[in-house]
Design a protein around this nucleic acid. Structure first.
Length: 384
DNA sequence: ATCGACACAAAGGA
DNA sequence: GTCCTTTGTGTCGA
């Protein structure tokens, strides 16, 4: 043990209560906090949790961790603030659909010296949960072809129950049916909004590919009277914790996951990036696994670069923020040049329209080892 | 200074 | 106990 510092000690109790430290609106402690109703008191808790989640759905005062290795400093998360929707969803009956994106960084950040701190080389886990807020009276008719694998309390909801209102340059609007929804995570400079690259590793880390975080397709699911967004996944991609660790990238056919010989030894669930076409397969060809939770979890995310001027006095400290984005995918043919909305091209005639995003406040990202900063003037990893 | 690559070590699971 | 996987981080060179 001459080259490595000892494992970090468990966080002192005061660090495990970000609510008391976070200056911005209340933050999540755990993904399960969504289900405890902490984030959205107007919404009822979900009862159809995956056992791995529900068994740990203890009161937050117990500070239960849903991830292993309790010695890691986990589960401090800055709050994500909602911004104004960029596009508007509605149902065919013109009922407006409000969207709530709940996101948390459940691993990889520390709260130190009154700011959020990350290390470029350490993994982040970012969880996203989406709730489509529709009055019970306006709930769509469930699909008759709902998967028999679904728990009785859940039924998939046809994406075509949702439309998006596109603003056109000529001032008019156009209503387009949603083919499917997707979420992703990006980062940007807190001051100027310029993109900051994130990378996602496989469990092989340096031996595997590094990619941008995938755009994870999700499916609206009627769950106990609410429409939640369930990650579309396949059994091999479910991790040991019951959380989804891997998603169908935009450029991977949905059917590939079912036939891939993705090893499931241990908790390793390496994403398979080898195949490469987009798919417009409707999710009906891809039954929702009954173990899926209503949480998308992006594992092994890293900042590609550090913030500038870390630890230098009399210089402007650069800060990054993490952004969770909800997209609605529509047919490119329906989305002609007059569309004002923020759109990104997918493959095979799909265009991703941003519905809404939520973002953290500033996060300082250190590029070197913790020991480097601990040795600085002030010691103890002082940031100044 | 930053960042990628290589390496070692610690923790946990099989 | 061993062996393997995962991941934090020390170090070095570009």
């Amino acid at each position: 043990m001459t080259t490595s510092a000892p494992r970090p000690e468990p966080l002192p109790a005061q660090y495990a209560i970000p609510l008391a430290l976070e200056p911005s609106p209340p933050a999540l402690l755990l993904p399960t906090a969504y289900h405890a109703g902490l984030l959205s008191p107007a919404l009822s808790p979900v009862s159809s949790l995956h056992p791995a989640l529900s068994s740990q759905n203890a009161p937050l005062s117990g500070l239960q961790f849903i991830f292993p290795r309790a010695s890691r400093p986990l589960l401090c998360t800055p709050s994500f603030s909602g911004l104004a929707p960029i596009s508007h969803l509605q149902q065919p009956n013109l009922h407006a659909v409000r969207v709530q994106i709940n996101a948390a960084i459940s691993r990889g950040l520390r709260f130190e010296s009154a700011r959020w701190l990350a290390y470029r080389r350490n993994y982040l886990s970012i969880t996203i949960n989406v709730v489509f807020d529709i009055p019970l009276s306006a709930l769509p008719t469930p699909q008759p072809s709902s998967s028999p694998l679904l728990p009785r309390s859940r039924q998939s909801v046809d994406n075509h129950n949702f439309s998006i209102v596109l603003d056109l340059r000529n001032g008019s609007q156009r209503v387009v049916k949603v083919k499917f929804f997707a979420v992703t995570v990006v980062a940007e400079d807190e001051v100027n909004g310029r993109p900051v690259e994130l990378v996602q590793h496989t469990s092989k880390r340096d031996q595997g590919p590094r990619r941008k975080p995938v755009v994870a397709r999700i499916r609206p699911t009627l769950s106990d009277g609410r429409i939640m967004a369930t990650p579309i996944s396949h059994p091999a991609s479910l991790g040991a914790h019951g959380l989804v660790e891997d998603f169908i990238p935009m450029d991977r056919p949905a059917s590939a996951g079912l036939s891939s010989n993705n090893p499931t030894r241990g908790s390793s669930t390496s994403p398979d990036y080898s195949t490469g076409h987009d798919s417009e397969h409707e999710q009906t060809s891809f039954d929702l696994n009954h173990e899926s939770a209503e949480i998308v979890c992006f594992e092994r995310i890293q900042f590609k670069r550090a913030t500038a001027n870390n630890g230098r006095k009399n210089t402007a400290q650069q800060m990054f923020r993490v952004v969770a984005i909800l997209y609605a995918a529509v047919d490119e043919t329906e989305c002609f040049d007059g569309v004002v909305s923020n759109a990104e091209h997918g493959m095979n005639g799909i265009r991703y329209l941003e519905i809404q995003r939520v973002a953290t406040g500033g996060v300082m990202v250190r590029g070197r080892s913790p020991g480097h900063y601990a040795d600085r003037v002030g010691g103890g990893g002082m940031i100044q």
